[in-house]
Lab assay of single mutants.
Amino acid sequence: MSIQHFRVALIPFFAAFCLPVFAHPETLVKVKDAEDQLGARVGYIELDLNSGKILESFRPEERFPMMSTFKVLLCGAVLSRVDAGQEQLGRRIHYSQNDLVEYSPVTEKHLTDGMTVRELCSAAITMSDNTAANLLLTTIGGPKELTAFLHNMGDHVTRLDRWEPELNEAIPNDERDTTMPAAMATTLRKLLTGELLTLASRQQLIDWMEADKVAGPLLRSALPAGWFIADKSGAGERGSRGIIAALGPDGKPSRIVVIYTTGSQATMDERNRQIAEIGASLIKHW
C-alpha cells in the first residue's frame, strides 16, 4: 500500500482519535458579512469528516447552483462504474471539434489522439474542462443518470439537468442544476469515506481534487503551510461562485467545507476574496 493510499485508508482512524471539535460562531459572522459585502445569498456548511456531524452552517438547506462543483460527483459516478466493471479508466475516447464547448483548455489539445477516461476526469476536476465533463456525462448516460446515481446514494436534493455550459445559467428560483450545502457536503463525505467506492477509487477521487489547479484564489489562499486540501470550485452566471473541499491540518483532511453564493453584482475577484476570507476565519478558529 502506498503512503497516499495509507493516508486515505486511515482518515477515519486518525479522526477518531482527534480531540473533540467545537464550532466557532466567528466564522458564521464572516459568512454573514460576506453576504453584506456581496449583496447576495451565501450558503455555508462545515462537517466533521469522521462523524458527519454538522459543526457550523448557514442557509444549509437553500438551493444554490452547483456550477462546476458537480464534476466531482460526476467522476465519482464514473469511478463507481469502474468498480462495477462497467468502465475502464484506460479506455480512450475520441471526439471532434464539434464536441468542444466553451472553456476546454485540455480537451482542445487532444482532438487528434483523444483522451482516456482517467485523463478526462483529471481534466474535468483539476482544470474544470467543460468538454471533458460533457464527454464523461455521455459515458454514464447524461445528466439524468448522474441525478439517479445521487438518488441511489441517498441524495434526493442534488440534481443535474443540463450539460456544460448551460448548467451554469443560475436563474433565480430555478431548481435545475442545483444542490443544497448540506446535501453536497453529505454526498461528498460519502464519496470520500464511505463504502460506495473502493479504496482505490476513493484515493483516485481525492487525488484529482488535491491536484486542483484553478481554485488557488479561494480556500487555498488562506491555508497555512502543512495543511491538506482537496477541492473543486465552480463559477456561473449572475454572480455565482462555489467551492467544495476536504481539508485539515497535519497533512490530512478532517472536515468537509461547502460554500456557495449566487445573485451578486460583485466582480469575480471580490467573490473570490470573500470566500478566501471565510476560509481564513475557519482556519483561525479551527
Rank of each mutant, 00 (worst) to 15 (best):
residue 232 K to C: 01
residue 88 Q to G: 10
residue 54 I to D: 06
residue 57 S to M: 13
residue 267 T to Q: 13
residue 229 I to K: 02
residue 129 D to F: 00
residue 9 A to Y: 14
residue 233 S to G: 10
residue 55 L to K: 08
residue 170 A to W: 11
residue 146 L to T: 04
residue 9 A to I: 12
residue 139 T to P: 04
residue 279 G to T: 07
residue 8 V to F: 15
residue 87 E to I: 11
residue 139 T to A: 15
residue 54 I to Y: 09
residue 168 N to A: 08
residue 158 T to H: 01
residue 223 L to E: 02
residue 106 V to E: 14
residue 253 P to K: 08
residue 83 D to P: 02
residue 185 A to E: 00
residue 29 V to Q: 15
residue 115 M to C: 07
residue 202 R to Y: 05
residue 267 T to N: 12
residue 90 G to C: 09
residue 44 Y to P: 00
residue 90 G to Y: 12
residue 283 I to S: 06
residue 166 E to V: 12
residue 237 E to C: 12
residue 53 K to E: 12
residue 143 P to Q: 06
residue 87 E to L: 11
residue 161 D to G: 03
residue 21 V to F: 06
residue 210 E to G: 10
residue 153 M to K: 08
residue 212 D to I: 02
residue 56 E to H: 08
residue 275 I to H: 01
residue 140 I to Q: 06
residue 129 D to P: 00
residue 247 L to Y: 03
residue 245 A to C: 10
residue 78 V to M: 09
residue 229 I to M: 08
residue 158 T to R: 00
residue 212 D to M: 03
residue 217 P to Q: 13
residue 280 A to H: 13
residue 250 D to E: 14
residue 285 H to I: 04
residue 262 T to W: 08
residue 100 L to D: 02
residue 198 T to E: 11
residue 82 V to A: 10
residue 186 T to Q: 14
residue 281 S to W: 07
residue 281 S to H: 13
residue 64 F to A: 01
residue 187 T to P: 00
residue 226 G to S: 11
residue 250 D to A: 13
residue 138 T to V: 15
residue 20 P to R: 13
residue 11 I to Y: 11
residue 254 S to I: 10
residue 87 E to D: 10
residue 140 I to M: 07
residue 161 D to L: 03
residue 48 D to S: 08
residue 171 I to L: 15
residue 89 L to T: 06
residue 71 K to Y: 00
residue 172 P to T: 12
residue 18 C to G: 10
residue 117 V to C: 04
residue 234 G to P: 00
residue 216 G to P: 05
residue 155 D to I: 01
residue 55 L to M: 15
residue 271 R to C: 08
residue 87 E to R: 02
residue 127 M to V: 12
residue 13 F to H: 06
residue 234 G to N: 01
residue 226 G to L: 05
residue 123 A to C: 08
residue 112 T to H: 14
residue 34 A to T: 10
residue 142 G to W: 01
residue 248 G to T: 01
residue 209 M to S: 02
residue 93 I to E: 05
residue 70 F to Y: 05
residue 45 I to L: 12
residue 123 A to E: 04
residue 192 L to K: 01
residue 242 G to E: 01
residue 163 W to C: 12
residue 253 P to C: 11
residue 110 H to V: 05
residue 17 F to R: 05
residue 67 M to H: 07
residue 217 P to K: 14
residue 37 Q to W: 13
residue 118 R to W: 15
residue 119 E to R: 05
residue 197 L to F: 06
residue 154 G to N: 08
residue 167 L to T: 08
residue 278 I to E: 00
residue 129 D to R: 00
residue 8 V to C: 14
residue 5 H to R: 08
residue 190 K to Y: 12
residue 235 A to V: 05
residue 79 L to M: 11
residue 58 F to C: 08
residue 63 R to N: 06
residue 38 L to G: 07
residue 145 E to M: 13
residue 183 A to D: 07
residue 182 A to G: 13
residue 20 P to H: 10
residue 251 G to I: 07
residue 221 S to R: 13
residue 111 L to T: 13
residue 4 Q to E: 14
residue 225 A to S: 13
residue 154 G to H: 06
residue 20 P to D: 15
residue 140 I to R: 02
residue 93 I to V: 14
residue 181 P to V: 07
residue 70 F to Q: 05
residue 206 I to D: 04
residue 204 Q to R: 10
residue 166 E to L: 14
residue 115 M to I: 07
residue 91 R to S: 07
residue 256 I to W: 01
residue 113 D to P: 07
residue 201 S to N: 09
residue 228 F to Y: 13
residue 82 V to E: 05
residue 55 L to V: 11
